[in-house]
Amino acid sequence: MSCTEIVTALYFGGLLNHDPANPGWEERDRFVMSKGHGCPAQYAAMAGSGYFEESLLLTLRKLGSPLEGHPNVRKLPGIEASTGSLGQGLSIGLGMALAARLDGKGWKTWVLLGDGEIDEGQVWEAALAAAKFGTSNLIAIVDANTAQQTGYTRDVLNTEPKAEKWTAFGWTTQEVDGHDLDALLAALRRAASASDGHPQAIIARTLKGKGVSFVEKEYGYHGKPLTADESRRALEELGWK
């Protein structure tokens, strides 16, 4: 849930240039959900955009469903990369950005990373290489939701100060409240229009389980479904009618 506003801004804020009726359109922007476990938010946005019927959302993780537990490019049109082994999406995104440049195309590549995910060394290999190649058409968004599998990121492996790190690695970096939709949209637009010869990073400060008080407070909800009672309370808090 921490990345809900980020995904909403991309899919419904006029940023991700895509055509749900034609998922293979060559000029489309590419969106890579590198933090593959965040795919339910993407599936919801895809349903809302018209990639598939909303009823399909209820087949999530069920036998035969194209909505697998982590994104599978071979199952669901509109998914750009199979992810789920953390740390790999930024490299894939860099390859896409280089392909666009080789072909002289204007489409962008957006990669959404988790703040636990950036523990992975491959992310920093990709960050260095993107800076070397000066891919302004590559935008990395770090969903800095403060928590990962077994604890708070500051305790498990402290990757702060994040903005300074990405800047030091050669990226143009912005830091933004990832739940403030207007601020997010402004940051994403700035990144999308950049042509400064640097890849673009956005550190989005978020909270895991944002909007649900008892989840926000407890990292133990990582990847754990809510009980029926918890779901009812959560929907009440979110104002779902």
Partner: peptide
Amino acid sequence: RFFNVGIAESNMVGVAAGLASAGK
């Protein structure tokens, strides 16, 4: 058409995957 990503095999593989998925 040549990209040296440094001594970073993992990234090399991922970059190649991205290039391939965009038709290279």
